[in-house]
Design a binder for these strands. Structure first.
Length: 352
DNA sequence: AATACGGGGTC
DNA sequence: GACCCAGTATT
C-alpha cells in the first residue's frame, strides 16, 4: 500500500519550488505561507519572499512593516508578525541557525504541530507525521474513522493514526505524498477514487462513504460590521493609522475608520465631523461619497462606505494618525478591502 | 473546549 | 451560501 502511494506521488507530484530545497528557512517560509492557504494562492508570495530574503538573518533584520507589506493580501497577518518574531529569536538566541528538529521547532512562535513536523521531516527526514486538512481527510476515509477532526480528541486520534501510518525511514516523501494525495485525488468533493493508489485499501471507497468522511462539526459564527472610511485630503496629504491588537488586521494601515454609524448622505457626514470637532463650524469641506464595498471574511462580513473629504483646514485627529502624502499610501501595508479601493482604476480620480 | 484570525476558490 | 484550504494562538 505504501509503495503504491509513493509510486503514485513520484509520477504525479506537482513541481513546487519548496520541494527542491532542504533549507529549513525556505521550508519554514513555505509552510507558514501555506497555513490555511491554497498552493495557488501562496505560490507567488513564496517566490516574492525568497527573492527578498536569502536567509533567516536577512529576514530578522528586515522591518516588520516591510514584511507586512510583502504579506499584504494573504490574510492571517499574525503569521507575518510571528515569523518576524521567530526570525529575531533565532538570530539572537540560536546563532542564526534555523533548527530542524521537531522538539526545537515546536517551541517557536507560529510553529505548531503541523509545521514542526513538516519542517523537521522535509529538511531533516525526521520521522514525524504531518497532520493537515489533507491528511485528516485521507486517513478518515482510508481507515473509516468517524471522529470529529475539529475536536481535541479527534486531533489526537488522527495524529496517532498518522504517526502509525508512517512506517519506514522516508518521512519526507511520505508526508509530501499524503498531502499531495489529499490535494489531487482524495479531494473534499468528488474524490478521484479510480485513480487512487490506495483504492483497494480504502474503507470509504469500499463502503461508498466518501461523502460522509471526514467528520467536521462546523461552527458558523458570523457577525456583520458597518465601516465608514474617511479619506481626507489636506494639502495633498491624507491620514492613516496602524491597527492595533484584539481585532482583525493587526499591524495593517487604514484611513480613519468610524464604525457602527450609517450615514445616508454627505450632509450627515458633515454634521458628524463638526459635532465631533474634527473641524470647526466655519470649515469649508467638500465631502463626496465614493463607493461601498461588501467584504467577506471567514467570521465577519464588513459593509464599508468610503467618503472623500477635501478640506482647506487640517482635520483634528487623534495623535495616532500619521500624515502621509496621498500618493504614498501605496507604500503601506493595507487590508485587501482598502487595496481593492485604491487600485480601482475607475475610482482613481475620486480618491487621489 | 471554543473562538479568533483573511482571503480566495469551488460547487 | 456553505465548505474548505500544507493551522496556530489565545481564552
Amino acid at each position: 500500500m505504501h509503495k503504491s502511494l509513493y509510486n503514485w506521488y513520484n509520477i504525479n507530484k506537482r513541481d513546487l519550488p519548496w520541494r527542491n530545497t532542504k533549507d529549513p528557512f525556505k521550508i519554514w517560509l513555505s509552510e507558514i505561507i501555506l497555513q490555511q492557504t491554497r498552493v495557488e494562492q501562496g505560490l507567488p508570495y513564496y517566490i516574492k519572499f525568497t527573492q527578498n530574503f536569502n536567509n533567516i538573518n536577512e529576514f530578522a533584520n528586515a522591518n516588520l512593516n516591510d514584511i507586512l507589506k510583502l504579506w499584504q493580501g494573504l490574510g492571517y497577518y499574525s503569521r507575518a508578525r510571528n515569523m518576524h518574531y521567530t526570525a529575531q529569536f533565532i538570530r539572537d538566541n540560536l546563532n542564526g541557525v534555523f533548527p530542524n528538529s521537531y522538539s526545537e521547532l515546536i517551541i517557536l512562535k507560529g510553529i505548531g504541530p503541523y509545521t514542526a513536523a513538516a519542517i523537521a521531516s522535509f529538511s531533516n527526514n525526521e520521522k514525524k507525521a504531518v497532520v493537515d486538512g489533507n491528511v485528516f481527510r485521507v486517513l478518515a476515509r482510508l481507515t473509516g474513522t468517524y471522529t470529529d477532526t475539529n475536536s481535541n480528541s479527534g486531533k489526537n486520534e488522527f495524529s496517532k493514526i498518522a504517526q502509525d501510518f508512517l512506517l519506514e525511514n522516508n518521512a519526507a516523501i511520505h508526508n509530501q505524498a499524503m498531502m499531495e494525495l489529499g490535494a489531487l485525488i482524495c479531494k473534499p468533493l468528488n474524490p478521484d477514487c479510480y485513480n487512487c493508489p490506495l483504492q483497494n485499501n480504502c474503507f470509504a471507497f469500499e463502503n461508498n462513504e466518501q461523502k460522509n468522511l471526514p467528520i467536521k462539526i462546523k461552527k458558523v459564527k458570523n457577525k456583520t460590521r458597518l465601516f465608514n472610511y474617511f479619506i481626507f485630503e489636506y494639502n495633498n496629504t491624507t491620514y492613516i493609522t496602524q491597527r492595533g491588537p484584539n481585532d482583525i488586521w493587526e499591524g495593517l494601515f487604514e484611513f480613519p475608520l468610524l464604525e457602527n454609524i450609517l450615514f445616508e448622505n454627505e450632509n450627515e457626514v458633515f454634521n458628524y465631523l463638526i459635532e465631533k470637532k474634527i473641524f470647526d463650524k466655519k470649515a469649508k469641506l467638500n465631502i463626496k461619497f465614493i463607493t461601498k464595498y461588501k467584504h467577506i471574511l471567514t467570521h465577519q462580513t464588513l459593509n464599508a462606505s468610503f467618503w472623500k473629504i477635501t478640506c482647506s483646514l487640517k482635520p483634528k485627529l487623534a495623535a495616532n494618525y500619521i500624515e502621509v502624502p496621498i500618493s504614498e499610501i501605496k507604500k503601506y501595508a493595507v487590508p485587501r478591502l482598502l487595496e481593492k479601493l485604491i487600485t480601482n482604476d475607475k475610482l482613481q480620480h475620486q480618491i487621489f
